[in-house]
Write a protein that binds this DNA or RNA. Sequence first.
DNA 1: ATTGGTTCCTGCTGGC
DNA 2: TGCCAGCAGGAACCAA
Length: 284
Amino acid sequence: MPELPEVETVVRGLRPRLEGRRLAEVQQRRPNLRFPFPENFAARLTGRKVERIRRRAKYMLLHLDDGQVLLCHLGMSGRMMIHEAADGEAPTPLDRHDHVVFTTDEGTEVRFNDARRFGIMDLFADATLDSHPLLKDLGPEPLGNDFSGPGLAAALKGKRSPIKAALLDQRVVAGLGNIYVCEALFLAGLSPRRQAYTVQGGRAERLAGAVRQVLTRAIEAGGSSLRDYVQADGELGYFQHEWAVYGREGEGCPGCDCDPAVSGGVARLVQSGRSTFFCARRQR
DNA sequence: ATTGGTTCCTGCTGGC
DNA sequence: TGCCAGCAGGAACCAA
């Protein structure tokens, strides 16, 4: 599912096609995604130039030349598919889940496709960005300077929920989802069931380092491609081949030499309604 | 205030 | 082989 590394990969794929380009045409093909589209969505975007594209947590933020910001969230199944203009070739037919089509002044099409419609699009003034309800409570960027062991420890202090749930809380650290939380806890050797407030000192330091490491590696690999997710240019990411525990129930834990038939290997449990994968031997 | 459960949605998977 | 229940999950929302 698109988590921080996947969104970062999409942003990097979109930049060369959209930054500095004008949106010649914008088609909104249904009234809502997860929420209704803002009023006059397409009209307010048409003719605008995209000055800068950046990422905050799992959100893409497109800064426009008139002081508006277009916010996009890929939800579970959202993709940005790029169709370059080609001489004399018939355009690829639209899919029924192509909900928004942006066409630039160069003729490039960017199609937002989202089968499950958990995605979000919003459009608002740059000046209100810091108070935007979806952005205002977000925690630090895990790859930024504001994220550290002591900072993480402070955010976890007093939290009685399992560390797994705490890391999914976007107010603690922004951008992690189920996959990378499982992977980071594995790397840090921490049990997903451990109460969050017990992750202090060296444990918090290890966990912060593990979060950074797993996200950095995933971005280098171009993200993880599940059946839902394709990078902006249609290339597949490779990080799913590097998962140590996610989706590997019953397989041997890559950190243990033990036989999965004897030890049980990677275990699965359900926490806050989602699957957690972990190695009970290595993670305490 | 904090925490846990439910909901939205569709496509894929696995069991019969 | 075909059918269909169940599962996947980000984050708002609600209830305790």
